[in-house]
C-alpha cells in the first residue's frame, strides 16, 4: 500500500468512526497541521456525504400488489430446524458411540488379566496362519449381518444428508 492509499484508508476509517481513540487523536492532529491530509479529508468527506445523500431507486407502483398476488398462492414452509431434527443426529452419534463402547467393553472383558505368562502376546503371530481362518464362519452370524445392514443404512442416510447439505450450500452460494 503506497503512502496515498494509506492516508485514504486511515481517513476512511476516521470518517466511518472505526478508529481507536489514539488513532482518532493522531488523525485530528494531522488534519490540523498537514495540508495534504486536510485536503484529502475534505475530498473523501465530500464523497461520503454524496453517497449518503444518494437516493433509493423505486420499483413500479404495482410492485407490492404483484408480490402479494404471488404469495397468495403459497404457504410458508416449515422452519428448517423442524425437519433437521438435532435429536436424530444425536441419536445416530450415540448409536455409533455405544456400539464402539460395547465392543471395547466386550473386548476388554475377554482378556484374562490374571493370566501369568512370559510377557509375550496371548496370540503367537508367528504360528498364525491366515489362510486357515474361515471368514464365512465369522460373517455367517445373523447378528453380524444385521449389524452390517444397519451400518450400511446409516451410512446411506449420512451420505444423503451430506449431499443434501452440499446442494443446499451450493444454492446458498448461488
Amino acid at each position: 500500500m503506497n503512502e496515498q492509499q494509506n492516508i485514504e484508508s486511515r481517513l476512511w476509517d476516521y470518517i466511518d468512526g472505526r478508529n481507536s481513540m489514539a488513532e482518532k487523536s493522531t488523525i485530528e492532529k494531522l488534519l490540523e497541521s498537514n495540508h495534504e491530509w486536510k485536503t484529502k479529508y475534505h475530498e473523501l468527506l465530500e464523497v461520503h456525504q454524496l453517497l449518503k445523500s444518494s437516493e433509493l431507486e423505486q420499483p413500479s407502483l404495482r410492485f407490492t400488489k404483484n408480490v402479494m398476488e404471488e404469495i397468495s398462492r403459497l404457504y410458508i414452509a416449515p422452519a428448517t430446524k423442524t425437519y433437521i431434527n438435532k435429536k436424530i443426529i444425536w441419536g445416530i452419534a450415540s448409536f455409533f458411540f455405544i456400539t464402539i463402547l460395547g465392543f471395547l467393553i466386550y473386548g476388554f472383558g475377554q482378556i484374562d488379566w490374571n493370566a501369568k505368562g512370559d510377557n509375550t502376546l496371548p496370540i503367537n503371530f508367528n504360528k498364525l496362519d491366515l489362510s486357515k481362518v474361515d471368514l464365512s464362519k465369522i460373517f455367517n452370524n445373523n447378528f453380524v449381518n444385521v449389524f452390517m445392514m444397519v451400518n450400511v443404512l446409516l451410512a446411506l442416510v449420512l451420505l444423503d444428508r451430506f449431499l443434501a447439505n452440499r446442494r443446499k450450500n451450493f444454492h446458498k452460494e448461488a
Binding site: 420499483p59 408480490v67 404471488e70 404469495i71 403459497l74 410458508i76 428448517t80 430446524k81
Partner: peptide, 15 residues
C-alpha cells in the same frame, strides 16, 4: 428479481 426475493423471503419466513 426483487419480487422473487420477497416471495422467497415469505416462503422461508419461518427460518
Amino acid at each position: 428479481v426483487a419480487q422473487d426475493v420477497f416471495i422467497k423471503a415469505y416462503r422461508y419466513l419461518s427460518d
